[in-house]
């Protein structure tokens, strides 16, 4: 990042980028004003490589930009039609895998999945809707889990821990049955700040702090006027 002296150079779609060793392609791109779309990534958290939307191609091989460190001389393909279409396909997979009803969602306008769909100009998913039966789970006194919307980005699993380092959220089962669950006792005991954080970090409207879902009205939300990624692209000047 800016403070450390850049010591390696590589390219993204032919554009020369500088970064320091250890930086991932995603972080390095961001520092160089290039937006690589992502969903499960959250700055400061250990990357999970779960959504795969940040997939790029280097030397014919596909890799997640959020987990792959940039290397000297690397030629990264990012904004190319076939990769963009596969990324869009993943966004569409998420839309059909769950039940996403944007107009009634507390997160609409602040939702990163919705914002990505706009950015990729998704109209109708190419895949058939699965309409899974999922529940809304009152998970303790503070939090509501809206499983219909969950994209299993694992931000909550990675980012929310108690003072004695216990995980509060966790993943259950596997395959398409995988679901996020919460230790109710621990979740109810979360300090207010952490409970709000859990909601704010959830990219979709799956983790809701009870009673505050519509505190910011639709129309005044993060992505209501500017597309996701524009803040990075603008910084480039």
């Amino acid at each position: 990042m800016p403070k450390t002296k850049p010591v390696l150079t590589f390219t993204i779609d032919g554009k020369k980028c500088r970064t320091s060793p250890g930086q991932t392609i995603l972080e390095a791109a961001k520092a160089n004003g290039i937006y690589i779309p992502s969903l499960c990534y959250w700055e400061g958290m250990k990357p999970a490589g779960a959504c795969r939307i940040c997939t790029v191609r280097v030397g014919g091989r596909y890799m997640a930009a959020c987990t792959q460190p940039a290397a000297e001389g690397m030629a990264v393909e990012n904004d190319v039609p076939d990769i963009q279409d596969m990324r869009k396909a993943i966004v569409e997979m998420l839309f059909v895998e769950g039940n996403h009803m944007c107009p009634t969602c507390e997160k609409s306008g602040n939702c990163e999945l919705q914002a990505l769909a706009y950015r990729f100009q998704m109209l109708v998913p190419r895949f058939p809707f699965q309409f899974p039966v999922r529940e809304v789970e009152p998970a303790g006194t503070k939090i509501l889990l809206e499983h219909n919307r969950c994209v299993k980005c694992l931000r909550c699993v990675r980012g929310v821990r108690t003072r004695d380092n216990k995980t509060v959220f966790g993943a259950l089962k596997r395959s398409k049955d995988k679901k996020i669950a919460v230790d109710q006792a621990l979740a109810s005991a979360l300090p207010e700040k952490q409970a709000r954080q859990a909601m704010d970090r959830c990219p979709v409207g799956s983790i809701l702090r009870k009673e505050v879902g519509f505190a910011v009205p639709i129309g005044k939300r993060k992505y209501d006027k500017k597309p996701i990624g524009s803040e990075i692209e603008k910084a480039e000047g």
Binding site: G49, A50, C51, M93, V96, E97, Q130, K152, K176
Partner: peptide
Amino acid sequence: FVEESCGWCVPCRAGNPLLLR
């Protein structure tokens, strides 16, 4: 494969059921 996917990443978890269907 649908059953044995660990479910971590989207293409494998959500994509394989779509292929099967």
